[in-house]
Design a protein around this nucleic acid. Structure first.
Length: 237
RNA sequence: CGCACUAGGAUCU
């Protein structure tokens, strides 16, 4: 069983994802019972493939084998349903979990944020704080994304405040999210401030800042930054 | 076997 799990994990991580799912069924055919380690990998493969039918079938297996309440399996289920666009199924799993950890909350928040439900995402983020769950950089980053799609500048600034307090401002994806959020809210100046403070930038941060300028009609700045990117270490997309 | 990257996160397209 360990061997199967490792094999499935490998394919779930690097693809081809179909192989992970095929392997899972092959394992069932040998009569082996999957365990709670098996499912997160298989579900991840479904999520990456955007295969809701597959995911729902495997969700049934999980339910039959009573693994639904496991925190790892639960978080993976929420993620899978979220990535496949089924926020309601994700929420059902979330609501049924006896013990929710940070990942479960974050996966649910990200699920809402990525499916055009930023209000639900922010509401859940707030609720998470109310129940005393401490957020990490990923949770904060997802909340920032929700603000970006809502163009909720004030809420975004509040969350930026939390980020400063918790010291996550230099995580590249958190800072990049902030740049995007400020740019989408029309505040290129704030976006630039975040950008300038970043100790490290990747192609995505550059891209976010440049398109932020472009979206707000600052073609000159966008071009200037684009040249700078060429000039520097980063490779443009 | 909690498996030393076991599960969730980023811009534009």
């Amino acid at each position: 069983l360990f061997f199967w799990n490792v094999m499935i994990k490998g394919y779930a991580k690097n693809g081809p994802y179909e192989e992970a799912i095929a392997l899972y069924y092959q394992m069932l055919r040998t009569g082996l019972q999957p365990n709670k380690f098996t499912f997160p990998f298989v579900l991840k493969a479904c999520a990456s493939l955007n295969a809701p039918e597959e995911g729902i079938t495997i969700h049934k297996h999980i339910r039959n084998l009573r693994f639904e309440a496991d925190v790892y399996v639960g978080a993976a289920l929420i993620d899978m349903h979220g990535k496949c666009g089924n926020t309601q199924d994700a929420r059902d799993v979330f609501d049924k979990m006896p013990h929710r950890n940070l990942v479960a909350w974050t996966a649910m928040i990200a699920g809402y944020a990525q499916n055009g439900k930023p209000i639900e995402a922010l509401w859940l983020f707030k609720e998470m704080g109310l129940v005393g769950m401490r957020s990490d950089s990923v949770a904060l980053g997802s909340a920032v994304l929700a603000c970006a799609s809502l163009k909720a500048l004030l809420t975004g600034k509040t969350i930026h405040g939390y980020i400063l307090k918790s010291g996550f401002e230099f995580y590249v994806y958190v800072a990049t999210g902030l740049i995007d959020m400020y740019a989408k809210c029309g505040s290129v100046e704030f976006a630039r401030k975040v950008f300038d403070r970043m100790p490290q930038r990747n192609a995505v941060s550059w891209n976010a800042m440049i398109s932020g300028y472009a979206q707000n009609g600052h073609a000159k700045e966008a071009l200037a930054l684009f040249k700078k990117m060429h000039f520097g270490l980063a490779t443009p997309d």
